[in-house]
Design a binder for these strands. Structure first.
Lengths: 188, 188
DNA sequence: GACTAAACGGAGACAGTCCCCGCTTACCGT
DNA sequence: ACGGTAAGCGGGGACTGTCTCCGTTTAGTC
């Protein structure tokens, strides 16, 4: 899985610089930031960028793993201090807010919960799906969540909810309201 | 509002040919079909296309008015034969199915229900919003729908729902299930 | 210090958007 | 019928973005 031979020093340097710049660029220009431009800003040729990250998805993924892991960690924090149902709700809220506010994250989360998502992207979504599964299972056990719903469906619904809220004002002010509608519908 | 002077014969011909081709192209290649290619297929220069339809939105809109009006008409058909609550649900189902299955329609419906949508696009969404308002008001009067929800919010939620279902399988098999979740949450 | 494979980088092919402006033509008035 | 004119045409070309190819550079090794 890991590199047999460690990365050459210049390669590693470029890789990291590219990542730094990508995070910035996606944050300020959204998921469609120009890749050649990112390469230029990082001071490397576009060939180098495409070698390290063959697709936009790959770069997006690499740029946001940290944040995704942060979200997953939040799930356990909520689970530790709230009853399962409330923890799930709070976490979904967090997820939706991030989806809307962190430019570029939406595309990534979207493909992470897509039916036929590629293995590459799946690797990235695994953390988030794990977190969701834990919360969903707990809420089901507690009896505050329908038992006929899958964790990934909850994630998809949250994604849809974020989309709806985005249409409303682009700021996410509606998330809480819409989320309460959803939890209402998700009761057993 | 209408043309002071009627369109010149050649202009009208091109306009209509362009529209025909656009409907086809969007249907088979989605909302991102190449505009220059549409112009070529219609046998006109790209300048002509951009004169008649200054933006992709404008063309999309013109290409789908018929279908949008069809959807609005469906609303009244349902209203005539079903109780308000059921009529709303059925219509939302119809709307979601169309959103997913008719390639290119999603982008249009999306911007038609966006907060800061331009006047151009608004003109197009007006039919759909009218239909939604009638159904929503009736359902509220009947007492099967929360009174604190706006028609446009219902449309946004439906759009989000379609998005969620699209993530699942891309065919819309999940729509009914998700829709029942939503109506559950929308009860008073 | 020399060798080699890994890595670089940027030129260039390609695709898409959109504008500009010289040319054509439909629609008048006579 | 026919000429004048403005509405309309169209495609060349500037620009932006993606992605590949391959000659050149350089880190790591002995």
């Amino acid at each position: 899985m890991t590199q047999v031979r460690p990365m050459r020093a210049d390669a590693r340097r470029n890789y990291e610089r590219l990542l730094e710049v990508a995070v910035e660029a996606f944050a300020e220009q959204g998921e469609n930031a120009s890749l050649d431009d990112i390469a230029k800003r990082a001071g490397v040729g576009s060939g180098t960028l495409y070698r390290h990250f063959p697709t936009r998805q790959a770069l997006l993924e690499a740029a946001f793993v940290d944040r995704l892991e942060g979200l997953a960690a939040k799930a356990d924090e909520f689970a530790a201090v709230l009853p399962p149902g409330a923890a799930l709700t709070e976490w979904l809220n967090e997820l939706c807010v991030a989806t809307i506010q962190v430019r570029g994250l939406k595309a990534l989360l979207g493909s992470a919960v897509t039916d036929g998502s590629s293995a590459t992207v799946a690797a990235c979504g695994v953390t988030v799906r794990g977190a969701a599964t834990r919360l969903v299972d707990a809420a089901k056990a507690e009896g505050t969540l329908r038992s006929d719903i899958e964790p990934i469906e909850v994630l998809r619904l949250a994604h849809g909810l974020a989309t709806a809220s985005e249409l409303a004002d682009g700021q996410g002010k509606e998330i809480r309201r819409y989320l309460s509608l959803l939890t209402e519908g998700l009761r057993p």
